[in-house]
Write a protein that binds this DNA or RNA. Structure first.
Lengths: 158, 158
DNA sequence: ATCCGTGCAAATACTTTGCATTTAC
DNA sequence: GTAAATGCAAAGTATTTGCACGGAT
């Protein structure tokens, strides 16, 4: 297992203790599944599968409860990727990037937060809106999948 | 009923005909519910309630199918607002603005698209990502609800 | 008359909840 | 030992699907 995965896992475990939560087997397993994930966003279903393949039995309801716990102490965020998709969970140990998600192939691009800073600052100063960037993802299409015609219609008025 | 609501309704109906879809009573009712909505985003549940209060019985499955039809011909978009929230539908007759949604009070701010143009252009030119702006909303907190502390924790490393 | 759209009913996901038992501390 | 966490079972919500009937064109 790569070093950074272990580090992430250890860090999450440390944070769980700090928060005063008990370090149980299911919690260890969920944390490991999160840390080991190749993808930046992972669904509850994938976590459950990962745990069952590696550790053994686990109840779905337990996983949901653990994810809620982790979100409550700020270790993960729950975000909704697209229409018809189930909720995804994302480790928030480092918040220095935003996510662009391709609606075609599902791939995620991580973009330095700095690129967005001026827009978010504008939204704050001009419109009084404090953006929570890691609560949502930018949807669109990536380079490989090409520009998706976004519902063109006969009239020109769009 | 205000003029613009009627106009929106008529326009949608016109587009339905143009698309070669049949103009049925349920479709009229759903379109009216969409056009009459005060909110820019409306859930299937609200549409169903609106129709039942004004027109009469309608099947939930029919509403979902109609909304899919309308999305297919580009009259509405389906977007996922926040975690644990059901899907929302949004009329896309005019696309000149983006949406900021307050996670606290649920209010929506409509911001001129121009404010976002340079960011989206950057994402395209530098990262090859074509943003589909009306497929998602910017989440955060509005002026009235104040800045929500986004999971502060003891360590500084965020 | 034809074919699209709807109602009805049932199924599927995903997620949440209550309660008794187990486990970390 | 005690409070917190889990397993189990059941329910809830949102949404989808198959099929036969009915209505728009």
């Amino acid at each position: 297992m790569p070093t950074d995965v272990i580090l992430t896992e250890d860090l999450l475990i440390e944070r769980i203790r700090e928060a005063g939560l008990r370090l149980t087997l299911p919690r260890r397993a969920v944390v490991r599944a999160l840390a080991a994930s190749e993808e930046p966003f992972i669904s509850a279903r994938l976590i459950i599968e990962h745990v069952r393949e590696t550790v053994g039995r686990i109840e779905a309801s337990t996983v949901y409860r653990i994810l809620d716990d982790l979100a409550r102490i700020g270790l993960v965020h729950h975000i909704q990727l697209g229409s018809g998709q189930s909720g995804r969970w994302h480790i928030t140990l480092d918040h220095d990037h935003e996510h662009l998600v391709c609606e075609v192939c599902g791939r995620t691009l991580e973009i330095p937060h700095a690129e967005f800073a001026s827009l978010f600052e504008l939204l704050r100063s001009k419109y009084g809106f404090q953006t929570s960037p890691h609560h949502f993802a930018f949807l669109g299409s990536c380079d490989d999948c090409g520009p998706q015609d976004d519902h063109p219609h006969p009239r020109g008025g769009d």
